[in-house]
Design a protein around this nucleic acid. Structure first.
Length: 198
DNA sequence: TTCCCGATTTACT
DNA sequence: GTAAATCGGGAAA
């Protein structure tokens, strides 16, 4: 444990490759002495200025989106629907605002703490399933925005090997507003095992 | 400053 | 399946 991926992993221009390769990696947070983490099961790529679904579409620069224009390897956390935080890994080079949304994890570390944060009694498939839910489980909020992904308290490291055949590709979720870009196959997920995803 | 709406989740009907 | 919860960002005025 604690063997973060090098920042060079994120600083590539092919955001879809990074999104796909993040599957199977392990995402950790270590907050207030509590270690929590899980294997990444689902991601979505947001392809910078040319992607209508991206917050940086058309080169939009605001206080919120500025972090996406930095060099890859940091977190982009934002608040949505008035109640949820969503976590992205910023990728690409400087001035290349790509990001990968982390949408689901398989919980592996600190499950008791995650249950407590999520106000749940029992472990089930919903503990870290969904971008808002996983942030709540890991204790991620706006204070994590712009934090590097290769050190405490928020980092990603190798998890398990993922075979090409267990990856499903499809359209992104919740981006109907993106018009012709709404259907692009930028979503990647590890297919659930027959037995159980837990 | 006002207004609209969102990269969602959960509780109900 | 539908709807409510809930608030900051971004565009327009």
């Amino acid at each position: 444990m604690y063997n973060p991926l090098p920042l060079s992993f994120y600083r590539r221009s092919n955001v879809l490759a990074v999104a796909k390769e993040l599957l199977g990696k392990t995402l950790f947070t270590h907050m207030n002495g509590i270690l929590t983490g899980g294997i990444i099961l689902e991601t979505e790529g947001y392809a910078g200025m040319s992607d209508r679904a991206s917050h940086a579409y058309g080169g939009r620069r605001t206080a919120r989106t500025e972090v996406m224009y930095q060099k890859g390897g940091i977190a982009y956390v934002y608040f949505c629907y008035g109640m949820h935080y969503l976590l992205n890994a910023v990728t690409g080079k400087e001035e290349e605002p790509h990001a990968v949304l982390i949408r689901a994890l398989q919980p592996t570390h600190g499950i008791e703490a995650m249950l407590q944060r999520r106000k749940k009694k029992r472990l089930d498939a919903t503990l870290t399933s969904g971008p808002g839910a996983l942030c709540q489980a890991l204790g991620i909020d706006l204070s994590c925005n712009a934090l590097p992904l290769d050190q405490e308290p928020l980092w990603i490291e190798e998890g398990r090997f993922v075979q090409e055949g267990e990856i499903a590709v499809g359209p992104r979720v919740g981006v109907a507003y993106a018009e012709e870009d709404a259907h692009l196959p930028y979503r990647f997920q590890i297919l659930a095992k027959q037995t159980s995803i837990l």
